[in-house]
Design a protein around this nucleic acid. Sequence first.
DNA 1: CTGAAAGCGCTTACAG
DNA 2: CTGAAAGCGCTTACAG
Lengths: 334, 334
Amino acid sequence: MAVTMNDVARAAGVSLKTVSNVLNDYEFIRPSTKQRVHDAIAELGYEANLTARSLRSGKTRMLGLVLSDLSAPYYAELASRLMTVASRRGYRVLVEQSGGAADNELTALQGPFRQLTDGLLFTPLAMDADAVAARRGSKPVVLLGEHILDPRFDVVTMKNEEAAEAVTAHLLAGGRRRIAVMGAHAEESAGSPGLRLKGYRKALDEAGIVFDPALVAPCGWRRDGGASAVAGLLDSGVPFDAVFGLNDTLALGAMHELLIRGVSVPQDVAVAGFDDIAEARFASPSLTTVSPGMDEIAERSVGLLIDRIEGLKPEDDGVHVEAGFVLTVRESAP
Amino acid sequence: MAVTMNDVARAAGVSLKTVSNVLNDYEFIRPSTKQRVHDAIAELGYEANLTARSLRSGKTRMLGLVLSDLSAPYYAELASRLMTVASRRGYRVLVEQSGGAADNELTALQGPFRQLTDGLLFTPLAMDADAVAARRGSKPVVLLGEHILDPRFDVVTMKNEEAAEAVTAHLLAGGRRRIAVMGAHAEESAGSPGLRLKGYRKALDEAGIVFDPALVAPCGWRRDGGASAVAGLLDSGVPFDAVFGLNDTLALGAMHELLIRGVSVPQDVAVAGFDDIAEARFASPSLTTVSPGMDEIAERSVGLLIDRIEGLKPEDDGVHVEAGFVLTVRESAP
DNA sequence: CTGAAAGCGCTTACAG
DNA sequence: CTGAAAGCGCTTACAG
């Protein structure tokens, strides 16, 4: 079988505990002892059994990441960064796809997934704050991307409202007056869609433009959603001179549909998105959008979660982090 | 503390072993006993401790997935599907990003990552077949996406050569004669780049067109790689009337650069890619590409790996699966 | 600084 | 069909 700590202890002529101490960087070990243990480890090719360690210590050194769909570019890019940051602190990331469904989110929050992980990075799309609070369990949870202003939670998010306002203000500054919004209901108030819509309305107010609900098109936050939504708007005959997609993929879907129908971008209709996924810069025309500080979100959320896990952060009220954003102007809305 | 099997056994008035038998669907248990155990489990809210189970059984019910970068659209889409398929058979997927670097691939193959997983889905980008064979360890490994025709390995891949040939033949059929290839060296023979280049050359041969190494531009398989490569080609003055990007992201980067420079697609230069990522359909113009059967790859690779893990497949020679492909013609190369 | 013992919560042979 | 015991390989108190 595999080499165990016992084998190492025997080879080094010390007790099991001493080997464990060496492996766990316990301070007070005689250098010569330490050396003998390290020699034995090298000689035998010993590797610690992580499962046994987990069983005894109750820690897995894995972080759970719950998101709707890893194939969505924003989540793929975020997951990749989170993994990189976590690995620098010696943690792995285990991903669970919820599909944005409440029952899957609940399972991820309460089921065996929690056992496998020391803490959770959770993007709640279907569950609300109270539901999460009631089922959060005892291990640390950091909410991601949602702006739940709730002292019960650690939240790392982006400036949804301010960034959406900046995008809208930019479109207005470019002379657009009929800005269609895709990806929300006209009365939406919760979650990212609600906050971004609020930013949009705020910019309109600032400019003294009356909000027109006919310009708000609900749709899924994916390419096909944006394409259908813009098609519906064109077919309905509602005039518009700009499209603000509440995320980049749907903005790109909308732009595709516009171009197919012979609407030129940005001459006839300007298009802007939200997220600055890698694709935005290389779209044709390239997409004006907002970079919501993904690196900062990754860095801060993983850092905060691990600090909680390791007890480095006092268990006070929830910490709220809002990453900075940058408006990135490109060809689709100069 | 948490409820254990012991608590359940006591509550149900049976031994530990009987509870274990019930949990593991052992056949010969009296229905009444089974019922009592299930009642006790429900009453106490018992959940099996997965770590303890792993330590004793030596199985984690996790599959490892090693790929270069989860933020690359092809890998993101693949990972998402692999997770979905695995979860249907009761397995989770733990992802490790290698960045395409040999040392990271080696670590993933030999390090603690292997302990955490019962088997590996491995995309070798830097390591060759012999290196992998020498370090594969004792647990099952299924190679993904690479066409290593080696009986030592289970391999699930795509028809790299045939698909690339089909793309090239399509461009030729459209009247293109100077087809630039991006993403390989002119003498490349290994891995996906080599095979796709081979397919390209084969199609040229069929059409009686002489291979021109000046049309082959090496570059990274990302958007910026494709953009730089096409820029280099344009600057060099080498004439070409089509671009075949060896994957979609680089083809899209190339297309972006062409359009920026006022080269119209497909009128002046046709563009085709490889992978059919979600973005290809919504690009402007939409991208002609080849769908390499990702669903089939996900289904077959996970199925094969789990069969190996569970001993359902005799340990004979490596199984080789080549998923079917579909040429998807769109606006960029009609 | 180091040791001997206990135990994390399961599954695995081995009995009966 | 079910039970009592052993043990997977570590870490954790507890001693000294």
